[in-house]
Nucleic acid binder design. Sequence first.
DNA 1: ATGAAAGCGCTAACAG
DNA 2: CTGTTAGCGCTTTCAT
Lengths: 344, 344
Amino acid sequence: MCDYADPVPEDRRPTLSDVAAEAGVSKSLVSLVMRAEPGASPSTRRRVLEAADRLGYHPDSRARLLRSGHSRLLGVVFGIQHTFHADLVTDLYTAARETGYELALSAVTPDRDEKEAITGLLQDRCEALILIAPQSTTAELARLTTRLPVVVMARGVRGVDVVRNADADGLHLAVDHLTGLGHRRIAHIDGGRAPGAADRRRGYRSAMQRHGLPLETRIVPGGLTEEDGAAAARILLDEGLPTAVAAFNDRCAIGVLDVLTRARAELSVIGYDDDRLARLSHINLTTIAQDTAAMSRLAVARAVERAEHSPAGRRELVVPPRLVIRGTTGPASASPVSAAARRR
Amino acid sequence: MCDYADPVPEDRRPTLSDVAAEAGVSKSLVSLVMRAEPGASPSTRRRVLEAADRLGYHPDSRARLLRSGHSRLLGVVFGIQHTFHADLVTDLYTAARETGYELALSAVTPDRDEKEAITGLLQDRCEALILIAPQSTTAELARLTTRLPVVVMARGVRGVDVVRNADADGLHLAVDHLTGLGHRRIAHIDGGRAPGAADRRRGYRSAMQRHGLPLETRIVPGGLTEEDGAAAARILLDEGLPTAVAAFNDRCAIGVLDVLTRARAELSVIGYDDDRLARLSHINLTTIAQDTAAMSRLAVARAVERAEHSPAGRRELVVPPRLVIRGTTGPASASPVSAAARRR
DNA sequence: ATGAAAGCGCTAACAG
DNA sequence: CTGTTAGCGCTTTCAT
């Protein structure tokens, strides 16, 4: 018994046959028209399009792929809690649009692990997978690669196609920027076991050495969340402050800033990623930007290439990072201008 | 020509027929076993499972649904930039798991509008759509509802199934909390045209009136991002501060806090949503929590019910909000304790 | 430019 | 318990 008028005009959704009947042509023609392929006369094309619209027809992507053999679907696994992943996904959509491929999103959540996220995508018959900063072991990734092409983003892994930024170089940029401002006591709040953290740590160390600042080397255990940055900042507060901090990423840097600002500490802070949060005017965080648009284009292109041509072969594509100077870094010798004021 | 050894064992992915041949049984049996349906002997079941594993077989969900007629797929449209949406999606996954339905995610990005996000889902033959705070017009949503069941979350719309929290009540809770602390000059930074904003504005107004504080009523134009909150805070700073602020949502509240803390202003600030950011220890934001777990369960249940039983009928499910007292609100008459100190 | 027929991988309905 | 048959909605030959 219906509460109101039946909202669904027909019991089942209209199919290609329905459209063909409505337009008075064959299924083949409708198929051509719907895919915007050549081979139908303009008048037929118009009739078909009108019929489809009248019926509210939407092609069934699954039947389509079942028949055509390929899904033109790229699976993307990402951490829904990570703002930087969101930025990458945003650019992946844009990049995919240009190739004619669709994205199938599968999120990792506190309650849904990477394995589950990947399994879902596998069943959707994606032609390739793009994994953003995956935490699977190298062995698991290798095994997955025997099933279908896999492109890993934002993490260095052997035996798989990888698109990442030059993390070590990024920390060189950060340290160079800070030393250029006169800083010598520069701490690094690292990312622990997070993807890219080891490289950034390494970059920090070698940059410090290059500047002849070996003794100042100070690595504080951090992580990739604001929480981790805040904790690290409290440690610095307790154990003695440097004049500048290079944080593992922007979220971490924001946590640091939040704690330090409240403690009225004057420090230069630089983040990493240039994620959306860093750009907010009231945060205005100096950071090392990853070129997410370029990385996304490369990842999609590589995934498509592997899917269509050579599923074999693994390469690492490394994109250079870029320094973005905003308000959270300043001269080491500055007169007592607070971090807050500088950020204004 | 392959760079390395061919990583794909066979040219095409194994099918159910391959498994049947490998195990020496019929396709039907394999089908039963793969779906864990009763009707196959234990020994057969084992043989099939082994064969499937040997071949690395994964069922093709699209062929499966094409045949069985239903996809057991719930489409979810969300804004990938919104942390609160991410929280909802997280809980939707959990809720869906219990019903045996899968989620198909489709993100709205700066470059991909809601229409596009919905079209993608339609092609995937989702059985129902869950739209998180959609911006489509009522008419568009109504039209969509004639195609398939639609459940709208976090926005009140007529003519569609809706799951939302009681926004007006939420602001009553907020104002009650603040007046309980002795505040009388309480501003509201609103959400402009964002979903729910009108209700929260209304709730604020009536709560203020109820407390006999009509003259203090002060609504500042805001929005749903940190940026909006920061801008509103600057306005307050210029035009005279209240003693407390009820912000449209947590992100907005965080922007407010950020600006006010730097300006050394002592204000109580309360947010809305209780999103992940609010819970961070260094933010520690007092807020009005939406019960995302309950809302997600209700939304999924409603979507499934509509998909399976009665596609007709529209109801609004309203979940009560809850006050979560953390560190950003305190007595109006407190001795000069800064907001920063209270939040410690 | 158009149509008829076959079949993608799977499940449902039926038969044994 | 097991196998056979038909066909989901679409694309793809191959005719016309």
